[in-house]
Design a binder for these strands. Structure first.
Lengths: 181, 181
DNA sequence: GAATATACGGAGCACTGCTCCGATTTGTCA
DNA sequence: TGACAAATCGGAGCAGTGCTCCGTATATTC
């Protein structure tokens, strides 16, 4: 990679992060390029699709949340590990508005730049879920895809003006759908 | 209302219904106008906002689902009435893709053309919910807004390619968050 | 310092929502 | 019936979007 390309890539990523934090995952790509002092073609060369840009932006976070699942599996009991991870994962998605729709599309599309990260995240959750089910504290009819869907749904609800304020409460409500009473 | 205006209004509504059924709630307004053989200005005069168009499209459905709640309250027990209405209401939203985001925005915005219909729907669900809670079969911490949010979340999940096929299963899962075990 | 491969920038295309206003049609009243 | 006023229409025009393409400029290599 050429030196100027590397510099543009890094700068672009920084500007994109700020833009996505402020305007959500559907921030204007033109604005990002302009704000980075770079042509639109340059942005598209480095990030051919919006998913590629999001992947570059979120990759570390995905990995950290997935790894956190294994940490919790070691340190906590089946029930606490699942609930804590579910909560932390959900909270993490709250940072980036509108990221949940591309994620739901990506997990179904192996060509998407976000696909692998989403699959990794789902698998991490599924491990904790199975463990909790084996311990008899989670409902047996729920699977990893359901858990992923619930996380995405909570993120979506957090993006909606009418339910953003009660996100924590909705998390508690949805937790009852996963846990055995 | 002038005769030509009335004719355009009705025709526009028919074309819009087909377009929304096929392309979802964010169907191109230009396409709808073109397909109806009408200028864009005409469409905007009859339906000043997209919400106004959706309200005209969905008003009957909103009213029918709300009324259905009272029917079920008369005919069924607290638990069955709630679950059946929850299911029917959710299924109804499946007919129109992408309608849930504008609904969630509308219920918070009294100026929106969809506001009243959304409030009516939420109130209908809340009546059945309170009845079920008084009978001890629904969780006391859930309220009407939560129920509305769950319906919207299920509709959103149904719009996503990765979870559309398991919509019924997700309904069963989320029902456990509303009902007492 | 010259040659080559790499990367850049932005004009251009097709689409979107939405506004505005001159042209047209309808209903009314003499 | 015919003229007039009010209601309605149609689409050009503006600003924004995603995305492509290619002439130009820059970095690296020899």
């Amino acid at each position: 990679m050429r030196a100027d390309a590397r510099k543009n890539y890094d700068h672009l990523l920084g500007v994109a992060r700020a833009a996505v934090l402020e305007h959500g995952a559907d921030a204007s790509l033109r604005d990002i390029a302009r704000q980075a002092g770079v042509g639109l073609g340059t942005l598209y060369r480095h990030f051919p699709t919006r998913e590629a840009l999001l992947e570059a932006l979120l990759h570390e976070g995905f990995a950290a949340v997935a790894e956190r699942a294994d940490e919790l599996a070691d340190s906590d009991g089946p029930r606490d590990a699942l609930v804590t991870w579910f909560r932390e994962c959900t909270r993490w998605t709250y940072e980036y508005r509108g990221v949940t729709t591309p994620m739901m599309a990506a997990i179904e599309d192996p060509e998407s730049a976000l696909h692998d990260s989403c699959v990794t995240l789902r698998a991490a959750g599924a491990r904790l879920l199975v463990r909790a089910q084996e311990a008899g504290v989670a409902r047996p009819e729920v699977d990893g895809t359901d858990l992923f869907a619930l996380i995405a749904a909570l993120a979506w609800l957090h993006d909606q003006p009418s339910t953003a304020a009660r996100a924590d409460h909705l998390f508690d409500v949805l937790t009852r759908a996963v846990l055995r009473d």
